[in-house]
Design a binder for these strands. Sequence first.
DNA 1: ATGGTTGCCGGTAACGTTGCCGGAATGGAA
DNA 2: TTCCATTCCGGCAACGTTACCGGCAACCAT
Lengths: 341, 341
Amino acid sequence: MEKPATIKDIAKRLNISLSTVSRALRNASDVNPDTKKAVMALSEELNYQPNKLALSLRQKQTHTIGVIVPNLDYVLSLMVRGIDEVALEAGFTVMVCQSNESFGREILNTRRLLESLVDGFIISVSSESKSFDHFKKIQERNLPVVVFDRVTPHLTAPSVRIDNEEGGFVATEHLIEQGYKRIAVLAGPENLGVSNSRMDGYLNALKKHKIKKDPALIVHCDFNQDYAYFATLELLAMKKRPDAIFTISDRMAIGAMLAIKKKGLRMPEDIGLVGFNNEPVTSLVTPTISSVDMPSFELGKAAAKLFIETMHNKENMDLEEKVLKPKLIIRESSQKLPTKK
Amino acid sequence: MEKPATIKDIAKRLNISLSTVSRALRNASDVNPDTKKAVMALSEELNYQPNKLALSLRQKQTHTIGVIVPNLDYVLSLMVRGIDEVALEAGFTVMVCQSNESFGREILNTRRLLESLVDGFIISVSSESKSFDHFKKIQERNLPVVVFDRVTPHLTAPSVRIDNEEGGFVATEHLIEQGYKRIAVLAGPENLGVSNSRMDGYLNALKKHKIKKDPALIVHCDFNQDYAYFATLELLAMKKRPDAIFTISDRMAIGAMLAIKKKGLRMPEDIGLVGFNNEPVTSLVTPTISSVDMPSFELGKAAAKLFIETMHNKENMDLEEKVLKPKLIIRESSQKLPTKK
DNA sequence: ATGGTTGCCGGTAACGTTGCCGGAATGGAA
DNA sequence: TTCCATTCCGGCAACGTTACCGGCAACCAT
């Protein structure tokens, strides 16, 4: 048993035509039940597997979805698993590419996936990307595109995300309620929509509680632990230092935590801290860090479902926009007061 | 610009034959420099991309490598990135599947990748797998298989791994040198080669230092934080409890740490702890946890290189076996004595 | 008997590409 | 002039599959 069996082999052994075998193997109609049975039996015996390549070539569909993500950290890999689950169920294979937050790599990945003739894309954009022409080119080819998690107003496509504004709001309001007065925010790159939305939530919370916004307490820095570390050191060196920090990711919260410890300050007594993503590490460090949790797995599943939907009725893909709700998980780093009630 | 351009389009526009265009696009020989130039120019203009499907169908090669891993934790995802890097360089695409440590899923993944007509496999086996027939079937089809990280003697194939025995040895010897007397080991499932090798290293270290092995201190449990937590609680409840624990993964070390803290014991004073993998989290928790580091990225690269090698000379793939060296990183959890010298 | 319907099947082309072979045109050497 | 080698090119088949069309029986109703 060397080469895998083909339809031709079956046809020859049964002395019938290729067409008949082909029909017998799927379209039960228009074929004698007996021949069909014979074909089925033989295909079983020869362990016949249809050749996907030929199939795809013929019907111009690969049943493959290209997924581009900026990285595969805890949250995103959970989302990808969600995508995978739904896609598999629907008969699709997914090809995952990481852009490593790099614009150039994102373009490269797009090209590679396009070369692989994927049927469409599910995308979470890199934090570095300011231009989206490479994605628009995909849409011009009439391939379905769904954006998830990291959405952007510059790309018109169906999308799934969480309510980042609300996430930022509840995190900030929680800090306010705990009695913190000077709340800083560590945001990501200025052009990253997710970051800006979370910051909007932060600002809304301040406004609601009549706290004046202080530009010195709003820091943009790279989406990464080391940058957050140094940014926090600077914040803590201010004459009137903040007494709480909201970071728009847990990675950054970890950086902030290290800086706070380095300075010898205590959480939550001297300074409060809330992160975003609810990565497992937040409950392992000392003190445990409060964080905004999001339904990542569900979000991935929703993205894949939306993709399949979009694929089927390309016409009226009137830009569905699905928004899931985040949830604040309160831990030691921000709980100054005893639990209410 | 709707459908992507094909060779046929170019031929028609230039009034030459398909064959000529095909030759012009790769085999410079046997084609007039002028026509070649014209073809190149037009293909540029039409943004021609060769259709991979047709190519693969024709030459019975997909230039795709199937990668099966038990999960995508820190170490394995680094390895996969290493594989990816080398594969890309060599013109291969990789398809990554997670078995989630499940035997059934591993079989499923194998089948799916086989259906996708990958050119070969790079595999790290699931901890649950006791039979390897599904992988042997691949080899019978004459497809190259390389095993990495989680190797097994039951599968005859070229392999890349780290010296797990040495890793277990240095970790244990370090604990001994720090003055710990009753050293327990938290091992993984009994049939997992990696775990057993690390345990062999542990046993060798004991023997070298003339410490009698105590079966009560050798605990097998599932490869996961919660199991490790409960296993550690039991260890600590012994009449003569251990004064140090070596866990064969950092996940388990975290579980152990939580149990130790729960019991109110201090590290390193009351109890020493060393993990394996050197995941970033080990340097974030309190106390920081000593761990055995391995060159994961390099290991992935080596696996891909070996794969490509194996692919090219299928005949004399006389089972190369590459072994990389691990390195102990000492942190707070095990450092009872001041640093030497 | 004739005509139309139905059930079943085979042949052909096509998806986009390349390998092989054969052939036309050109040039130079005999 | 004749012959052969070289240079360049086109035709055909094939990879494995399916869509489409047409054909041959057999059956029923007229």
